[in-house]
């Protein structure tokens, strides 16, 4: 599927089949979650990252069914199509943003998602304790969402942020790697 077709589908589904919610509500809710996690883990930002990823994973497991129900998509033929679907339809339908797909490796198993805007991180300033700037990935929930939803469609991936404007970098970029394709499960006793 071409990028244009995916963009068209994403736009159409966004306009017609999605209930909308106030963006600030989402931003502030997500902000309180992260702030509370930071307080609970007493500044152990590595652990906060892990928890955010875990929460995202649980969200992704369910979100994929909702996505399939709303968009009527079938299985993607290859990983490139998966990347276009994620960026032009997935993110569009749920967050109304379209990150760009960049930096493909030659074997087609790794790509980057570059976020021009990130509604989860509006108004956010990382705490000034010297460590948050280097250790906390604020939007790590999104990495978990990708991992969980792709696992349910037979793809094991690794997703992690490599740069974030909240940390002072120029862009917010997430790196997604296909580790392996998960085979269908066979019923017991059949090989």
């Amino acid at each position: 599927m071409s990028a244009n077709k995916a963009a068209r589908i994403g736009e159409e589904v966004w306009k017609t089949r999605i209930d909308k919610v106030n963006a600030e509500l989402v931003t502030l809710t997500y902000g309180s979650i992260v702030a509370q996690l930071c307080k609970d883990y007493e500044g152990d930002y590595i652990e906060v990252n892990k928890q955010l990823e875990k929460m995202g994973y649980n969200i992704g497991l369910r979100l994929i069914e909702d996505f399939l129900a709303k968009t009527n998509m079938g299985k993607c033929i290859n990983f490139k199509e998966t990347a276009e679907t994620i960026s032009k339809i997935g993110f569009k339908v749920f967050l109304n943003i379209t990150p760009t797909v960049t930096n493909w490796t030659t074997d087609g198993k790794q790509f980057s998602l570059t976020f021009e805007e990130n509604p989860l991180a509006d108004f956010v300033e990382l705490p000034d304790d010297g460590r948050a700037q280097n250790e906390l990935w604020y939007s790590n929930l999104l990495c978990g969402v990708l991992r969980g939803s792709l696992e349910m469609v037979q793809m094991q991936v690794d997703a992690h942020f490599v740069s974030d404007v909240l940390r002072g970098n120029e862009v917010t970029e997430m790196r997604v790697t296909l580790i392996r394709t998960i085979d269908d499960e066979l019923p017991p006793g059949e090989d």
């Binding site: 502030l28 509006d122 108004f123 000034d128």
Partner: peptide
């Protein structure tokens, strides 16, 4: 709106932005 800002009346504002 910054989730990390503690709206503690006693402390002065330290946010660089």
């Amino acid at each position: 709106c910054n989730p990390f800002y503690e709206n503690d009346e006693a402390k002065p504002i330290t946010s660089k932005r």
